[in-house]
Each structure stands twice: as structure tokens, then as C-alpha cells.
Design a protein around this nucleic acid. Structure first.
Lengths: 310, 310
DNA sequence: CTTTAGTTATCGGTAAAATCGATGTACAAC
DNA sequence: GTTGTACATCGATTTTACCGATAACTAAAG
């Protein structure tokens, strides 16, 4: 029969197997040899090719008993089929190389007053322990990070606890005390350890709205009846540090941000010292849990070294 | 379960249907809506995606009850899947547009002493009647054309009959008488119609080996005891014509090649005049039979106009 | 002309896969 | 809690792919 007109074969979709059959026939120029190559019976291969041809409404091959050759359309379609099979191979390759989740991309976020001090160390730890992991670092304020976590824009985030979001789970990493930062010559600098109540006399400099460090500091203030310098809103922790050095006031500073610094004196607070708790957050459903499980101990080591440095 | 490790799902091949499922989920960000869009039940779609994921060994989507989002690998694979579906669409388009065989490529051959005189007319006929047909013309000697026909390098050929090849079929087009071509002033020119036996006195100029016109002329010679000028072997019909004009000798010329020509006189041969029969040859199994059936009448008209011109 | 060896096409039965509908399970909102 | 809504799972059914045997055909050899 001529292959004009559309036969309803009930077939709805193409199968890569069929395309391989087609390519095999095109290559071997024989149904039976192609069938051997595909490890199916000749009848199966003939039948499948026939169905495909009926579905397409065109003959892919011109059959002689001595020879099988592609038709003109067949040639075009064979080229397309080859492209498709290359692409399916690529899918398998993508999947294969992703079998090892440690060689993928991992997007992790941290809020600004932590990110600066943690990311560089995190990067060097990851580089040695998980060299194939492509790390993407995101420094955003906490609210934004939570939104990104939920929408899948990042895989994990270092956040100050607590964060109330049922779709997320958390592993606590370290508890970090706040220290008092003051300019050299400040009256409080005379004591090696400062009782929180002493701070009531000195209005605290804070970061602008939205920074969780601001909220944490505000918490401390409210608990101990401290005052806040309402006129100053620093945009970043380093700016805040400069202000302290310039004698504008004093502030609370998380320990990660503490460093030897001309013009500034850091003093611990007396127990029970106010702290902030940092945890690693990720979606309960995250597909990257295996990566997270590997990163977790690294972060713990990082946390331990922080404690030790103090 | 984590998607690490290779699960043997018995699955062997990818189906475009599955890829459409994947794309639908990626688009609708929901299994149930995707299922609706694909006109299958949600259970089917879930099951198929799951099987695909197991086969690939990676999760394509991260599922929450409120949200479905592609994993990192998922994104890559979704892009590949989109490319594959585009390509399968193209296959269908190729097949569709080939439904009309009259818009394809048609490769036709003719032997040299015919091609020159027939192809130009054939082209103009096709251009008006089958404007979408892309015509490829091949001028080769008969043996080569037969080989090309058999191997599928051309779809049809105009050949001098008979051609003995069981894989080919033939439709006779026209029977073409040979005329005698001689220089002006030749003794034979005095008669309006020449009896074949008169030619015995004048050795015939012939084409070189391999040309079917040579074989045809040799046949005529043997049948009527004519002689051949063994020293001359023209490489083409126009060369032969120049030789005749130069007075080198006389020759037989098929009527298609006859034209008003200074220095040459053509004379018909007395009945039963020797002829050559030209037919259209194509493979029994040719996928282009529908095109051939449309070209056939055009060739007949061409043949008729030849007869009439005489 | 008959035989033989090689090809593709076809048929019936069987194994496997896709599908459906119903149900299970988890989560979020109220 | 309760309800609503999502995805996962299960068993029965339909559809599909597959095989083996065989038919139909061709080319070449006897």
C-alpha cells in the first residue's frame, strides 16, 4: 500500500526504542541484522517500524528483499532520531553525574552580620573536603533567605534561631555570645567582664531595620532595660564598628565579628551572657539532604573553631 | 527514600509521553493539574514520573504538599526533555509535509544523448504542473544510471529500452526514429527518404564506448550489413555533429537531436525505419510511485510534442 | 524450471507496561 | 480536632511489546 493518508494506529507517542530500531535499520541496511543488533526478533522490529511508519503516515524505508534503504523523508527523520537519541543519552549522563550529589551545585545563604565572617572559612573547608561541590553563596537578610529557602532558590541557610516555618527544619550549629564593643578610653573598659546592667547608662548603636542582629540586640535591651540610640542606624556591621571607633557610642557585637582592632575594646558580658543561636536551615523535602549531611560536620568544625578562638 | 543508588526498574527506554508528563509538571508546578493537562489520572502521572526518577536514579522534583519544584538536575533534564519534544514535533512535521509527495525531491536521470534535449523541456513542464517538486537531474551513461536506480541514488531514469533488471519496472514513453545526418553536398542528400541499405557504402561515425546510442547504431549496422568507421570515436553527440559538418562522415542521429543546422542535412530512413525506444524506469519498490504517476503524463506530453515536431 | 538460501511481513499467544479508580497518607488552614 | 487538598500507593484492567512460527517473496544456484 501507498503510505498516503493517515492511519489511526492507536499509537500516541514515540519511544526511544523505536528510534533506535530505525537507526539500526538505517545503519545495517537490513531488518534482520538490525534486529540482531537490537537484541530483538526480526518480527518485533519489523512490526514496530511498521507501526511507526503508519503513525507518521510515511514510509521510512524502501524495502527490497535484497536491500533496505531509507526514503527521502526517512533520511530526514533518521537525522532527527539521531539527535533525539543523543539528547536522551545526555539526560542519562546528567542523571549519572548527579548520582553523586556532592558534585552538584549547593546554594547556601547567611544573613549579613554572619555571612562576611563565616563564608570565607566555609569555602576553604568545602574546597578541601568536597572539592566537586560548586558552592553558591547568598548574603541576604533573614526574611529574604527564608523566602528563598521556601521557593527553592537556595538549598540551605545559616539563620539565627528561632525561625518559625514548618516547611523548614533546623540543626543548631553554635551559640554565639555578644560582646560589648567600645572605643578605647571608655569607662566600661576598665572592667574585664561587664555586667549587662551596667550597659543601661550607655545608649546602644544599632543596625538599620531588617537586620536580625538589630532584633537580637533589641531583645537584649528590652530584657535588661537598656536604651537605644534612636538617631543612629548603621547599614552594616563594619560601619557600626567604625562608629564605635569614632566614639559615637557602644554596641553589642557577635563574637564572629570580633577581632584585634586599634581604637576598639571588646569586653565579655557576665553570665548569663546574652547569645544568639545560629542554625543550619533547609527544607524538610530538600533533595539535597545528602549534601547537607556532609556539610553539617564541616559547619560544626567551623563552629568549634569559633568557640576555641574565644 | 534518597535517590542514591541505581534501582533496576526494568525500564529500558524513555518515552516521549513520560517527557511530556515531566514538562507538564514543571509547567503547572502540580502533579494533579499536570495530570489534567495530559488527560491522564493523577495516579498514572505520579507513577510514571516516579518510575522515570527511579530509572534515572535522581529525583526530578522536590515535592511538598503545597508546592512542587524541580530539583537542580530536574531543571537540566527538563531542558533536555523540551529539546527532545521539539525534535519529535519536527519529525511529525517532516512526516506531515511529506504526506504530499509532490513537494519532495525527485531525482531523475537520463543518458547523455537524450538528457541534453529532454531535460530543459521536462524542467519547464514540471515547473508549471508540479511547482513544489524539487527536481534533481542526472546525466550519466545508461549502466551508471541503472546502478544509481538500484542503489536508490536516483528515483527514476529515462533509458533506452530494453533494460533487463528485475528490480526495475518500465513505462514506455516514445519511440524515436534515427535519421541520417550528412554534410551538405553528400550524394545521399539527393533523396528525400533513404533506404537503410544505401548506407552500406558509407562507414558510420559512432560515439565512444559506453554510450547506448553507439550500441543502438551498432545494432542497426549489424542488421543491415553496414560498416563502421573504426577510427573515429566521438565523445559526445555535438562533437559527432561537428564531425559530420566537417565532412568526416555520416552518422545516425536520434530525432530529438535533429535541428536546423547549417552544413548538415538530415534525412529520414525508409520504413521500417530503425528506432530507439525510450522508457521511464524506476524501482518496483519505489517510495515515489505517486510522484512518478504524476510525472508520467507530463513525459507523455513531451513525447507527443516530439512526434508532432517531426 | 526447481531448489535453496536469504529477505521482510504477518499471525496468535504471552509477558510486560500503562492506566484507572479507590484508597492511603501527609500537611495546612480553619 | 476537622476539613480540604495535595501526592503516593494498591489492585484490576486495558494496552502494548515481544517472541516463535510461518508465509510470501526474491535472487541465485543447481
Amino acid at each position: 500500500m501507498e503510505t498516503i493518508g493517515i492511519a489511526d494506529t492507536g499509537k500516541t507517542h514515540m519511544n526511544t526504542r523505536d528510534l533506535q530500531y530505525v537507526l539500526a535499520v538505517a545503519e545495517h541496511r537490513s531488518f534482520s541484522r538490525a534486529a540482531q543488533a537490537c537484541h530483538v526478533s526480526q518480527s518485533t522490529l519489523s512490526g514496530q517500524i511498521k507501526k511507526l511508519e503508519e503513525w507518521l503516515g510515511v514510509a521510512l524505508f524502501e524495502r527490497t528483499n535484497r536491500r533496505v534503504m531509507p526514503t527521502e523523508v526517512g533520511e530526514s527523520i533518521i537525522r532527527s532520531a539521531a539527535r533525539i537519541l543523543r539528547e536522551t543519552d545526555q539526560i542519562r549522563e546528567i542523571a549519572m553525574s548527579a548520582q553523586d550529589p556532592l558534585s552538584g551545585r549547593f546554594r547556601i545563604g547567611a544573613f549579613p552580620t554572619l555571612a562576611t565572617y563565616v563564608f570565607s572559612k566555609l569555602v576553604s573547608l568545602i574546597k578541601t573536603d568536597l572539592p566537586n561541590l560548586r558552592l553558591v553563596l547568598v548574603e541576604e537578610k533573614t526574611d529574604h533567605l527564608v523566602a528563598m529557602l521556601r521557593s527553592g532558590d537556595i538549598d540551605a541557610a545559616l539563620l539565627a534561631m528561632p525561625v518559625h516555618d514548618d516547611s523548614l527544619v533546623c540543626r543548631q550549629l553554635f551559640e554565639e555570645p555578644f560582646l560589648v564593643a567600645m572605643p578605647t578610653g571608655h569607662p566600661l573598659a576598665e572592667e574585664p567582664v561587664i555586667d549587662v546592667h551596667r550597659l543601661a547608662h550607655y545608649p546602644l548603636l544599632l543596625l538599620e531595620e531588617g537586620h536580625c542582629l538589630r532584633d537580637q540586640a533589641l531583645d537584649v535591651c528590652q530584657q535588661h532595660g537598656m536604651r537605644v540610640d534612636q538617631d543612629v542606624r548603621a547599614t552594616g556591621l563594619e560601619t557600626l564598628r567604625q562608629m564605635v571607633r569614632a566614639g559615637t557610642g557602644i554596641t553589642l557585637m557577635p563574637r564572629v565579628a570580633v577581632r584585634d582592632d586599634d581604637g576598639i575594646i571588646y569586653r565579655e558580658l557576665a553570665a548569663p551572657a546574652p547569645t544568639r543561636s545560629v542554625g543550619l536551615f533547609y527544607r524538610k523535602t530538600s533533595a539535597k539532604r545528602s549534601v547537607i549531611q556532609r556539610i553539617d560536620p564541616l559547619l560544626s568544625r567551623l563552629a568549634a573553631s569559633e568557640q576555641q578562638a574565644a
